[in-house]
Amino acid sequence: MEVRTIKVFTTVDNINLHTQVVDMSMTYGQQFGPTYLDGADVTKIKPHNSHEGKTFYVLPNDDTLRVEAFEYYHTTDPSFLGRYMSALNHTKKWKYPQVNGLTSIKWADNNCYLATALLTLQQIELKFNPPALQDAYYRARAGEAANFCALILAYCNKTVGELGDVRETMSYLFQHANLDSCKRVLNVVCKTCGQQQTTLKGVEAVMYMGTLSYEQFKKGVQIPCTCGKQATKYLVQQESPFVMMSAPPAQYELKHGTFTCASEYTGNYQCGHYKHITSKETLYCIDGALLTKSSEYKGPITDVFYKENSYTTTIK
């Protein structure tokens, strides 16, 4: 009895394709271990004539594949690729409408935090270190965002349907971005203890939790000093293409032309909904596939993004 075979390709990165001759009487799992086709788990399936010449994702289970996976995804987590594939199996079914010149995501599976993050990423200057993220990001900007969303979920250790947080998501993504040249110098002034300067680099240099107003941050924000008295913390120097200011959701007025974009969060910790506000020729609110415009805006804002380049204080 002759062994019926077909020729397929296996890959971990969709760049390096490895030619395989597979036995049609055995499952993919018996031949390769966990195997995925377009995100779908085909591990328990036997090869079919229609699979001839198709590319299958496999887990990096030998040295060659491990090197290829690390170079593309910059992670050695053995569960990463499987999590990416199972997320992709959902995100490829989502709709990605162009809204006001940006790629958004039609609401499904509690994905409003991903839509808000995706919209924000198209408006701030950011370059990702893992080629996987950078490639998928370019495709997302062009309207094909399924891979990018699935990668975000995998890097953030999230599953489809789980509630997510924009600030946490951005923080994970910033860790995989090139923020080497970003720098922030802060000064804390206390009447009792004097003053202390701190220099922050990388992710810490672009994120701040405690106030939404970048102007206020430049002037000074009140913080408790270690001595128990009130101290003032203010920005001395900022070198970065953008800054992200966050605070627990509270009524906040966004003035046209003073910011790049913002995240609105309605609801409580267990259950809520994100919308995205962007400042173009007027203010726009993007909620999944829905767009509304207004000249002014007041609502429960939790993150505001500002364009920056270089700032030095005039406070002496």
Rank of each mutant, 00 (worst) to 15 (best):
V3A: 12
R4H: 15
I6Y: 09
F9V: 11
F9P: 04
F9T: 08
T10K: 12
T10S: 10
N14V: 03
I15Y: 08
L17V: 13
H18D: 09
V21P: 10
V22D: 00
D23E: 13
D23R: 11
M24G: 10
G29M: 14
Q31Y: 14
Q31H: 11
F32G: 02
P34C: 07
P34N: 15
T35F: 09
L37H: 14
L37Q: 13
T43V: 08
I45F: 15
K46A: 13
P47H: 03
P47D: 05
S50I: 11
H51A: 07
E52W: 09
G53E: 12
K54T: 12
T55W: 07
L59I: 14
D62Q: 06
T64H: 10
E68M: 06
A69G: 07
A69V: 10
F70T: 12
E71H: 11
E71W: 02
E71K: 13
T75Y: 09
T75H: 07
T76I: 11
T76N: 11
S79E: 00
F80H: 08
F80S: 02
L81F: 13
G82P: 14
Y84G: 04
N89D: 05
K93F: 08
P97R: 10
Q98P: 06
N100Q: 15
L102H: 15
L102E: 01
T103N: 03
I105D: 00
N110V: 02
N110G: 06
N111S: 01
C112T: 06
C112L: 04
C112D: 00
L114M: 04
A115I: 07
Q123A: 05
Q123E: 07
I124Y: 07
L126A: 06
L126G: 06
P130M: 04
P131D: 06
P131E: 02
Q134N: 08
Q134W: 02
D135T: 08
D135C: 05
Y138Q: 15
R139K: 14
A140N: 02
G143H: 04
E144N: 09
A146W: 08
N147S: 13
N147C: 10
F148N: 02
C149M: 11
A150E: 09
A154E: 09
Y155E: 09
K158T: 04
G161P: 01
L163C: 11
L163W: 06
V166H: 10
R167G: 06
Y172N: 15
L173K: 05
F174D: 06
Q175M: 04
A177S: 08
N178H: 10
N178P: 04
L179Y: 01
D180L: 00
V185M: 07
L186N: 03
L186Q: 13
N187Q: 11
N187W: 06
N187E: 11
C190H: 06
C190A: 01
C193Q: 00
G194V: 03
Q195M: 14
L200I: 10
V203L: 04
E204T: 07
A205R: 01
M207C: 12
Y208D: 02
Y208P: 02
G210Y: 03
S213I: 07
Q216Y: 02
Q216W: 04
K218N: 02
K219P: 01
G220M: 01
Q222M: 11
Q222H: 08
Q222P: 13
C225Q: 02
T226W: 06
T226S: 14
C227I: 02
G228I: 00
Q230E: 13
A231W: 00
Y234P: 04
V236S: 03
Q238I: 02
M244I: 04
K255D: 07
K255T: 05
G257S: 01
F259T: 01
T260A: 10
S263C: 09
S263A: 14
Y265M: 01
Y269L: 13
Y269S: 10
C271Q: 13
G272K: 02
Y274I: 05
Y274V: 01
K275Q: 00
I277E: 02
I277P: 06
T278C: 10
T278Q: 10
T278W: 01
K280W: 05
K280S: 07
E281S: 02
L283H: 02
L283S: 01
Y284A: 08
Y284L: 13
C285M: 08
C285K: 08
G288I: 01
G288R: 03
G288V: 03
A289I: 01
L290A: 12
L290D: 14
L291M: 13
T292A: 04
T292K: 00
T292S: 11
K293L: 04
S294Y: 15
E296R: 09
K298T: 15
G299V: 01
G299T: 02
V304L: 05
V304G: 04
V304K: 00
E308M: 10
E308V: 08
S310W: 06
S310L: 15
S310Q: 15
Y311R: 09
T312R: 15
T313S: 15
I315F: 15
I315E: 15
K316N: 15
